[in-house]
Design a protein around this nucleic acid. Structure first.
Lengths: 346, 346
DNA sequence: AGCCGGGCCGCAATCGTTTGCGATGTGATG
DNA sequence: CATCACATCGCAAACGATTGCGGCCCGGCT
């Protein structure tokens, strides 16, 4: 004899819990929320919790968001997920956000300010409580506006000129110093720099660090040996190197703004019949995946992606916790990974 | 004489629009929604639209979701964003979802069923209208349960045994046939297969295709030349190849289940002093980024990632449109990219 | 003139929570 | 015994949109 069991198609709501526990929804709400639980009798709280448990109640985040104007969600603004730099960072972010009860909304901007604006707008309308932004440019009207409007955010990898925002990045100075020292130790004296876009703080700070490193090592700071790439991409790296070679400048080693730019050089080596590292040493930045399997394996400055993500998430959580807190910024120490793309000059 | 201008800190709501246009919020709602616009007088609709425009009204998606139990959002369930296979697919998905007015929520499962369950639960509580799932295993209790509950979804790259779900993937048979034909044309007759995990449909279908391809070419189907990897990873690939070499089996070429497995072979080549392709040819699957810069550049079967993503999104949109529609599945044609990891046997 | 049928629009309920406020009961206190 | 403080809980109003239902008006018809 099977009793007809009523199956409810819709998820159990707070009212259901309340009814089952024999209390008012308001009481159930207070009992369920650890913050307000002291406001209800311990016994009734227990009853409510048991009822909720028994019917598998899950609070509806949408209704909650509507009422509280919060969402337990933060937005991640990424220029391009396809860039292997970002996935590990995202991973680090999620791994600290999740235990804290937050979720992350990932959006791609394709480096397009228009798309970026639309995406951020969409995030805001979904009541995200804060933003982790990896698309900052030195001049960034959108970010300054958001900051004025009191949107909580933290920057990763890059910063905005004149904006006091919490940020986390690798220590570019230290990283570039490592790279240059390595090349000098190998015997190089004429070293070029394929700089990243100077619209990004990282681009300028690495370029500046490069010149400082030369000077610190008693080498001349020759502007003819620095070329700017318009994007952090392989094709731009290749383009820049061609320009440099065509200029007739003499050099035996290259410090690239990042790994992609360095990999772009490989294409040019092939075109021009140069062998690496015999004719030309090159060193990247970021330690993206699979560099060890490249031809030749790329020497690079490794940065702790995962930790950068985690630290960014922690900074954001701090900010959400206490919006008045003075913005901290953290720099994480890079390290040098020597592979086969660097060697003594011929 | 500056008039005191009242600035509202909170975003304009539908009531504001209605008030400004001199109509009831209900009318404003109908006017704003193209679906219901015919229900209101064209003039008043114009007035409402103008009012909305003038104060920059953006509908609150949270309130809308609460009322309508919809969200214009779909969930993307990815095993691991760090795998370079997925970002381009995600990109393809987003590029068709966005014009259709949908957004994508990306979640990582780390190949962990527990995490997967939690993530999917979180997606559902946020009222996602459908799921695009890239984590399917052949036995997948979670997915079968979701399917029974009527959750709309489409599978990418992999399928679930006995479940009639829309799916999109590369044509494994064709791809493997291409790979095997290439090796045979080079003169190889003893070809090994480092198969992907046999819990995944892709793992078995590629393995099956491999054996069929051998037979079709009049070669023996030798079980000793097939080893299964437990994961689609470099380390597993390396492990499998070591096992195969240690077994004493003789072969001159390898068809790897995917690129990562193939790259794992490179490590073993180095360990054992084998040179590729002279001692051993190897061919991958997927055409992940940067393979052209590997040592040696990896021959592989290229699949149209971006299109796969786009097609998956289209299938999901179809399903959302008409849930009764018979599940379509699409296979996209792969192509062979010949590089330097394959050559004639010694 | 009376009636009918649209077209157009407003009323109010609703989605599932949260939360200020007030009601109730209890025990302690003067 | 009256008063008061306090703990506990219920009432009801939000949050911002959508939508069934019904009312009004106006033009056309008999």
């Amino acid at each position: 004899m099977t009793e007809p069991k009523v199956v409810r198609m819709t998820a159990p709501t707070l009212r259901d819990v309340a009814q089952l526990a024999g209390v008012h929804p308001a009481t159930a709400s207070r009992a369920l929320n650890p913050q307000t639980r002291p406001l209800v009798n311990a016994d009734t709280a227990r009853k409510v919790l048991r009822a909720a448990e028994s019917i598998g109640y899950q609070p509806n985040p949408i209704a909650r968001s509507l009422k509280t104007a919060r969402s337990s969600t933060v937005g991640l603004v990424i220029p391009d997920l396809t860039n292997p730099l970002f996935p590990p960072i995202v991973r680090g972010i999620e791994d600290v956000l999740t235990p804290a009860g937050y979720n992350a909304w990932i959006v791609n901007t394709d480096n397009d300010p228009g798309r970026e604006e639309a995406q951020v707008e969409s995030l805001r309308s979904r009541q995200v409580e804060g933003l982790i932004v990896a698309t900052a440019r030195r001049e960034h009207p959108l970010l300054t506006r958001l900051h004025q409007q009191g949107v909580r955010m933290v920057l990763v990898n890059r910063r905005v000129d004149g904006l006091e925002l919490p940020s986390v990045a690798a220590d570019d100075d230290a990283g570039i110093a490592l790279a240059v020292a390595h090349l000098i130790a190998l015997g190089h004296t004429r070293i070029a720099h394929l700089a990243g876009p100077q619209q990004t703080s990282t681009g300028v700070s690495r370029a500046r660090a490069f010149r400082h490193a030369l000077i610190d090592n008693g080498l001349p700071d020759d502007p003819a040996l620095i070329v700017e790439c318009r994007y952090w991409s392989e094709t731009e790296g290749a383009q820049a190197l061609r320009k440099l070679l065509d200029s007739g400048a003499e050099f035996t080693a290259i410090v690239a703004g990042n790994d992609l730019i360095a990999l772009g050089c490989y294409d040019v080596f092939a075109e021009r019949g140069l062998t690496c590292p015999d004719d030309m040493s090159v060193i990247g930045f970021n330690e993206m995946p699979f560099l060890d399997k490249m031809r030749p394996p790329l020497t690079t400055v490794a940065i702790p992606h995962y930790e950068i993500g985690g630290e960014a998430a922690r900074l954001l959580l701090d900010t959400l916790d206490d919006p008045e807190r003075h913005p901290r910024s953290v720099l994480l120490a890079p390290s040098l990974v020597v592979r086969a793309s660097t060697g003594p000059p011929k």
